[in-house]
């Protein structure tokens, strides 16, 4: 039971990364390999504000989200927008460039030392029915729920949100209906940045340390979740996240450390290979109704 809850909480954070990947993929057919690294880079901002300037966690967190959004927007404006007609694989390589760039900057400035970010709220937690859930886990659950619902509502009920969905269905037709293609693209990448920062902020208390590439596991989890969910389906990404979190927790709990350390990462590889073999469109992919 404890394992299941831990899995669900980790999974909900994977779902945030998966949502970012699915949003970008749905809108642009590009796989954003920098989805977790953007937030990792800006987490140093939180560390700097909170430990050097002793500002409250929430200020550092908001600064990190703002910075990550800015990275998304700048990347969109300087790189993505110039590659509107480029092959999608080439654009995907550009996101590998962004991934490497953020990682390289982290390595250049922060390599070798482990940084600690203060916890978002007081340590401790509450025990419900024999299952211990810490306050930061509660926070993660709450924030992920709010964000997922908020994003869903935004996409469904606002004009701009509908335009984003229409553009994902068919960018040219959406443009012919008068929706602003450039702003939709900017929104997508800005949102991807914000989701990245949020996911990293929420998983940091679980990982405990901040070092370059420390959240690679988060990216792998999110990527697997997005693939399980179907890459272009937002509900799929969410469900995929939870599923991957639970499977990961179960594997971790049942495989001895010595045979395969960090067996959860290997489990992800097996899941991905399995999904590609058996159901490459994922759980909810392609059912979302796209007429080719």
């Amino acid at each position: 039971m404890q394992v299941l809850v831990v899995g669900l909480i980790a999974g909900s954070i994977y779902a945030l990364i998966a949502l970012g990947i699915a949003l970008v993929y749905k809108a642009t057919r590009v796989l954003n390999f920098a989805q977790a690294e953007i937030g990792t880079g800006t987490l140093y901002f939180t560390w700097w504000l909170c430990t050097r300037h002793h500002l409250p966690w929430i200020v550092g967190a908001l600064a990190s989200i703002a910075a990550a959004t800015a990275i998304g927007l700048v990347f969109e404006a300087l790189v993505i927008r110039k590659m509107m007609t480029a092959p999608r694989v080439t654009v995907t390589v550009a996101t590998i460039g962004l991934f490497s760039f953020v990682l390289a900057l982290e390595l250049a400035f922060f390599a070798g030392t482990i940084y600690l970010v203060p916890p978002p709220i007081h340590p401790g937690g509450v025990r419900i029915g024999g299952v211990f859930v810490s306050w930061s886990q509660w926070l993660a659950l709450g924030v992920v729920g709010l964000v997922a619902l908020g994003l869903a509502a935004f996409l469904r009920y606002t004009d701009f949100g509908l335009a984003v969905q229409a553009s994902a269905d068919d960018p040219v037709a959406a443009q012919l209906m008068g929706t602003p293609r450039a702003r939709i693209s900017a929104f997508t990448w800005g949102m991807a940045g914000a989701l990245s920062a949020l996911a990293v902020l929420l998983i940091e208390p679980t990982v405990g340390v901040l070092s370059p590439g420390a959240f690679n596991g988060l990216f792998i989890g999110g990527l697997t979740a997005a693939l399980v969910g179907g890459l272009n389906s937002l509900p799929g990404a969410f469900i995929g996240g939870l599923a991957v979190g639970v499977v990961e927790a179960e594997v971790k709990a049942h495989l001895s450390f010595n045979v395969i350390p960090s067996s959860n990462v290997t489990a992800m590889l097996v899941i991905v290979l399995g999904v590609l073999l058996l159901r490459p469109q994922g759980l909810l992919g392609a059912t979302a109704g796209r007429r080719a």
Partner: peptide
Amino acid sequence: GRQVFGSL
């Protein structure tokens, strides 16, 4: 090809 937005 009409290109209605299928998921909407």
